[in-house]
Design a protein around this nucleic acid. Structure first.
Length: 615
DNA sequence: AACTCCCGCCACGCA
DNA sequence: TGCGTGGCGGGAGTT
């Protein structure tokens, strides 16, 4: 956050505008407070628990002692001791992994995950304290408006999918399921999806069906918006927001306005010299639309919408709230944090650049990343009504899907050589007992499926449900080690659809020159479950060691940091989403019949730019 | 009081 | 008709 703040200030030194921008107040002291909040949030179910909800494991406290010193296996006290037969096992590994990461980084990750920059401000230690305590048990207090904010919801949404999914294996999204897993009504999801669609982060396929593209198309989309913004003269009417629109904007359907608005809003940033847009100005410009008339009442509405959009953009770390100071006081405004200069290389090359930059971060990895392949679903708990987690085709989706106990068998391979297998199982506390059997069977089926291993890379485990904990267990000295990942909560929906989702390592910080790094604050960049980034190989376990050793890096000592960070980030977010998850399942089940994907029509989903389509 | 913006009613349009 | 969408604005929570 600090970085962002600085960035904002720095960038503003150049503009010759008469106003100044000041970041939302929330100095450094927020640090302390944030931590407090983190704890609170993590332990407070977002949604009031529903009696119909099968017991879902409480959010793990793996980070509980994240303030503590470095790697100390003794601290490794998994919350889910339950099914942990082996005393030295699972959590220990994870702990190690996590410990490997610098503490501060971890903290940051947490913050990023849970807070939006504009979210916290003046803090009141006292009250916070209070709230903190209460949350402990009576987690059913009042969600508090903030906790239900679109921004937070959006973060959770984003956490469900990887920023950079494998280019050619689109991720299918069911709004229905998303709504269910996030425990909100559909209506809210529309809001989010609409703006995401306006940026081509997702694309509509059919009713209830969307495709997740992630951030790949973002650069191109933004560039396009910038172009359009310029040719529409937005850069001119920008500051002196008042003048009517250039008449462009083929305002056709009155609907889709949120999408259109979102794009226009973004355009304003992209053509703005200061990259700062006041709420007021944006509203004015956006009102033009068709024909302004009852401009006043419209203004209010526009502003409301603008806030909605701003919230998701903030979640994407594309903008940040600030204030511009003017003679008459300060006005709320937003500052663009995303990329602005697309001039560099040719058109699409932007993505490439971005990718390259990303890759560069891992330059230290001298080895090609091993690939992890989900071989098959192994089993489901007895109590599970159904479990789909198969070799990959679209399994039935709908109201029946829920978070179930399931197990995955993953093969880890380096290049063509299999390094080992990983068993990944999800267990709800209530079903803990069945955990072992599941794993047992999982282990049995391993061998036969090795050859199926595909070259896919990472196993992506959406953690929307709040991965309770991830435990690695690699019996020391076991060559193609076997790793157990008990208790990983896997949203069946996501898995059933995309068993082999790729996840990239986390992008990080502001060192990204391209500006496409989106670091940020709120970036909840998803649950990237990177099993063994480059140097990590399951085989790394010292053959004589007796300690649970896992994914230790044998060549690049410092790398663990990054990966670990990714891990922590990936696994410790979206705490409160558990509450309603399963429960909500039944919520909206009507008309499941028509929920079939009619992917046919709507053939006009022309990827990037689809939303706006014609000028 | 000014900001924010959640909530959900209900219109729209397609199947 | 039913249902997925999503415009819209009342009014409540925050600052």
């Amino acid at each position: 956050q600090m970085e962002v703040e600085c960035l904002a200030l720095k960038d503003l030194t150049s503009p010759r505008k008469s106003f100044s921008v000041e970041p939302e107040e929330d100095g450094g002291q927020s640090d302390q407070k944030e931590n407090v909040c983190v704890e609170r949030k993590r332990s407070t179910p977002l949604k009031p628990a529903d009696s119909t909800v099968p017991a879902v494991p409480a959010v793990p406290v793996l980070l509980a002692n994240r303030k503590g010193p470095a790697p100390d296996l003794t601290h490794v006290t998994p919350i889910k001791q339950a099914a942990l037969a082996e005393p030295w096992t699972p959590t220990a590994n994870l702990k190690m992994l996590i410990s490997a990461a610098s503490l501060d980084i971890r903290d940051r990750e947490m913050k990023k995950v849970l807070f939006r920059p504009m979210e916290n401000d003046k803090d009141k230690p006292a009250e916070d304290k209070e709230a903190d305590d209460s949350s402990q048990e009576d987690g059913e207090k009042k969600p508090s408006r903030k906790q239900k904010s679109l921004g937070l919801l959006c973060q959770k949404f984003l956490a469900l999918y990887p920023d950079y999914p494998p280019p050619h294996s689109p991720i299918w999204i069911s709004l229905d399921e998303v709504a269910t897993s996030l425990g909100v009504e559909r209506r809210r999801i529309y809001d989010i999806v609409n703006v995401l669609e306006s940026l081509s982060i997702v694309g509509r396929i059919a009713k209830n069906s969307y495709t997740w593209y992630g951030r790949q198309p973002l650069a191109a989309t933004l560039e396009e918006l910038q172009r359009r913004g310029r040719e529409q003269g937005y850069h001119l009417q920008m500051e002196l927001s008042s003048d009517g629109d250039a008449g462009n904007a083929g305002s056709n359907r009155k609907d889709k306005s949120l999408r259109i608005m979102s794009q226009k809003f973004v355009m304003l940033f992209l053509v703005s010299k200061t990259q700062t847009v006041t709420l007021d100005a944006a509203a004015k410009v956006l009102i033009e639309e068709s024909q302004d008339s009852s401009s006043h009442s419209k203004y209010k509405t526009k502003v409301r919408r603008l806030y909605d959009i701003a919230n998701v953009l903030t979640s994407l770390s594309l903008i940040k709230k600030v204030h511009v100071r003017e003679e008459k006081g300060r006005k709320p405004a937003f500052k663009w944090l995303g990329p602005v200069d697309f001039s560099s290389s040719g058109k699409n090359s932007n993505n490439q650049d971005f990718r390259k930059t990303k890759m560069a971060r891992h330059a230290s990895f001298n080895v090609a990343p091993p690939s992890v392949t989900v071989l098959r679903q192994v089993n489901s708990a007895p109590s599970s009504p159904r479990c789909h987690l198969t070799g990959g085709k679209h399994s039935p989706i709908g109201p029946t899907s829920s978070y179930l106990t399931q197990s995955l068998c993953i093969s880890v391979q380096m290049g063509a050589e299999p390094l080992g297998q990983v068993r990944c199982s999800q267990v709800s506390s209530a079903e803990t007992s069945s955990g072992l059997p599941v794993q047992q069977r999982a282990a049995e089926s391993q061998s036969s499926s090795k050859e199926h291993a595909q070259p896919s890379h990472y196993l992506y485990v959406p953690n929307s449900a709040g991965l309770n904990s991830l435990n690695f267990l690699i019996p020391a000295g076991q060559p193609p080690a076997s790793v157990a990942l008990p208790y990983v909560l896997l949203p069946s929906a996501a898995i059933s659809q995309y068993p082999l989702l790729a996840g990239s390592v986390q992008q990080q910080s502001s060192d990204n020159p391209s500006g496409l790094g989106f670091s940020l604050p709120a970036v909840v960049s998803p649950a990237h479950f990177m099993l063994g980034a480059a140097p990590y190989s399951v085989t790394a376990a010292p053959e004589d060691s007796n300690l649970p050793c896992l994914l230790s890096s044998s060549q690049t000592p410092h790398t663990p940091k990054e990966t670990a960070a990714a891990f922590s980030k990936a696994f410790f977010q979206t705490p409160g989403t558990l509450g309603g998850v399963v429960a909500a399942t039944a919520a909206r089940r009507r008309g499941s019949a028509q929920r079939r994907l009619d992917v046919e029509r709507e053939g006009n989903l022309s990827r990037a730019g689809s939303p706006s389509a014609q000028v």
